[in-house]
Simulated scan of single mutants.
Amino acid sequence: MGQALTPTALVVEDDLMQRALVSMLLEESDMRVVQCESAEAALAVLDQIGSRLAMIFTDVELAGDMDGIEFAHQARERFPELRIVVTSGAPRVRRLPDGTKFMAKPWVPLDVLREAQHALRH
């Protein structure tokens, strides 16, 4: 009998402190975390381990040419059942993919933990 794979979350955030905080919270929820600062790097992760991801947590503003909303659309196309959370300090002006959760900054850690628990249940 093989050991169950640890659920993995992908955190895409260009701010190091925010990325570290979200990663710590998700690790507290017994998730393995992969961190990226750009959507381009996150797409490479999707190509490698997308089918093993439990959730994606992405900011709208990212390093690189692609923003978090475009990344969320591409992730949703590839993995329709994946839990995706998009966060931003600015008001949301563009449509998110169906089923994507928007979390306004500043969010509270409990909200991130709730999203992790939701992802782990599904």
Rank of each mutant, 00 (worst) to 15 (best):
P106L: 03
A54P: 05
T87H: 07
R83S: 13
I69G: 01
V93W: 04
G99M: 02
L25Q: 10
G89R: 08
E40T: 00
S51D: 14
R92S: 11
R78P: 05
L62V: 00
Q3Y: 12
V86D: 01
E70W: 03
D111Q: 15
V11E: 08
V112N: 11
A44F: 04
M1W: 12
A4G: 10
L10E: 07
P80L: 02
I69E: 00
T58I: 03
P97N: 04
A20W: 05
I49A: 10
A72F: 04
E115V: 00
K105T: 02
I69A: 02
E61A: 14
I84Y: 01
A54R: 11
R78L: 08
L82Q: 01
G2E: 13
Q74P: 00
M24E: 14
Q35H: 06
L53N: 05
G89S: 06
T100I: 06
T100P: 01
A104T: 02
S51I: 05
M31N: 11
S29D: 13
E40I: 00
G89K: 06
A90F: 12
M17A: 15
M1I: 09
L62I: 01
D47M: 06
T100F: 02
R114G: 06
L16C: 08
E40G: 08
E27R: 15
T6A: 11
V112I: 15
A44D: 14
T100R: 03
M17C: 08
I69Y: 01
S29A: 15
S23G: 15
V112M: 08
A41P: 03
A63K: 11
V12W: 02
G64E: 07
T87M: 13
G68Q: 02
A54H: 06
D59W: 02
Q117L: 10
V22E: 10
K105S: 05
